[in-house]
Amino acid sequence: MVRLGAVLLAPLALAACAETGDFGRPKPNVLNDAVYPAMGAALAYQRDEPVSAYRLTDNEREMRDFGWGIVMPPLEGQRRDRILTELRRTRILPADRARLDRASYVRTLIATDYRSSRARYAKLKDDVVNDTLRVEPFFAAASRVARDDRARARALADVPEVTPAERENATARIDENGMMIAWARESLDERLDSYRYALDRLMLETPDPYSNEVASAIDAFAAVLASLRPLGPARGIFKS
C-alpha cells in the first residue's frame, strides 16, 4: 500500500513544488511537511535505510535549512529536478534515484526570456556567487551537528540501560545527518559542474566579454569547494 500511495501522490508534487519559500525549499504545505515525510519514512524503512523517530535538534534543523538552498536546483523553471529533489528530501525516492542532469540548468537559463543576452551571464554569476556564500554557513552548522553526534555516540556507550529502540533511533539519526551532509557536498560538486557547462554553452550561443567575470566567479567557487575535506564518519564532509 505504501508503494502504491507513493506512485499516486508523486504527481501532486507538481503543485507542491511550484512556489519557493525560505532556504530554497518549496513553500510549506500539508504534502511537503506531513504526508510526504511520513510516507517517505515508511519507504526508507522498507529499503533498510536509517530512519530515526527522534525529534530534530536546533542544530540539525538549522543544518537542514541551510542545506535545502544547496540541494534545490536554483532556477524556478527546473521543475522536474526540483520535484526529484523534494521527493528525495522527503525520502519518497532513494538517493540513487534522484540524480540531476547537469544540462538542466543551462537549458532552463537559455529558455528564459531575457531582454539582453548578457542578462543570462549575470544570472549565472549571481547563482554561482550565492552558492559560494552558502558553503560556510552550511558547513559551520554541519560541524555543530557532528559535535552533537559525537556526544550522542558517547552517550550510547555511557548511559546505562539503553533500550534497543533508543540505540536504533540514535544511530539512525547519526546516519541521517551524515547522509544530509554528503548530499549537500555532492550537490555543490554537481552545481560547479553544471555552471561550467552552462558558461561553455552560453559562449557558444551568445559570446560576451562578461564571460570572464563569470569564469572568475566559478573559479572562486571551485577554490572554496577545494578547501573542504572529509572528517569523521565516512559520509560526513566538513570544512577544514
Rank of each mutant, 00 (worst) to 15 (best):
Asp113Cys: 04
Ala34Thr: 11
Asp81Leu: 08
Met179Ser: 12
Leu100Trp: 01
Val106Cys: 08
Gly5Tyr: 03
Asp189Gly: 13
Asn32Trp: 03
Ser240Val: 13
Asp101Ala: 09
Thr108Tyr: 02
Arg144Leu: 10
Met203Asp: 10
Ala184Arg: 14
Gly178Glu: 07
Leu75Asp: 11
Val30Ala: 11
Asp131Phe: 08
Leu192Ile: 09
Arg150His: 09
Ala34Asp: 14
Leu202Arg: 01
Ala182Glu: 12
Tyr105Leu: 07
Glu176Thr: 05
Asp193Pro: 01
Asp33Met: 10
Leu156His: 02
Ala95Gly: 12
Ile174Trp: 00
Met180Gly: 02
Thr163Ala: 13
Gly232Ala: 01
Gly67Glu: 07
Asp193Lys: 09
Glu166Thr: 07
Ala153Asp: 09
Arg173Lys: 14
Phe23Tyr: 15
Ile92Tyr: 07
Glu136Lys: 14
Ala223Trp: 13
Ile218Gly: 02
Met180Phe: 06
Pro74Glu: 08
Ala222Met: 08
Leu93Asp: 09
Thr163Ile: 11
Ala38Pro: 00
Gly5His: 02
Val129Trp: 05
Pro94Arg: 13
Arg196Gln: 15
Arg154Met: 15
Glu161Ile: 09
Thr20Leu: 06
Lys125Ser: 12
Glu166Ala: 14
Leu156Pro: 02
Met63Trp: 06
Ser116Ile: 07
Met180Pro: 00
Asp200Leu: 09
Asp22Arg: 15
Arg118Tyr: 04
Ile174Val: 15
Val128Thr: 12
Tyr54Asp: 14
Leu133Tyr: 15
Thr163Glu: 07
Asp149Ser: 09
Asp127Thr: 07
Leu225Lys: 02
Phe138Val: 02
Asp65Val: 03
Ala111Ile: 01
Asp65Ala: 13
Arg191Phe: 10
Arg152Ala: 15
Glu60Lys: 04
Phe238Thr: 01
Ala98Gln: 06
Pro137Trp: 09
Ala151Gly: 13
Lys239Asn: 01
Ala184Gln: 10
Ala151Gln: 15
Thr20Pro: 01
Glu62Ala: 12
Val159Met: 11
Ala157Trp: 05
Thr90His: 01
Gly232Trp: 05
Arg47Met: 06
Pro28Asn: 05
Pro94Gln: 13
Leu4Cys: 05
Glu60Trp: 06
Ala13Met: 12
Gly69Gln: 03
Arg79His: 12
Glu76Pro: 01
Arg91Asp: 05
Thr171Ala: 14
Asp208Glu: 11
Arg3Pro: 03
Arg144Cys: 07
Asp65Asn: 14
Pro28Met: 03
Gly40Ala: 07
Gly69Trp: 04
Asp48Ala: 13
Ala157Cys: 05
Asp65Arg: 10
Met72Trp: 06
Asn29Met: 03
Asn59Glu: 14
Ala184Pro: 06
Arg185Leu: 08
Ala157Asn: 03
Ala142Lys: 02
Arg25Glu: 11
Thr57Ser: 15
Arg120Val: 03
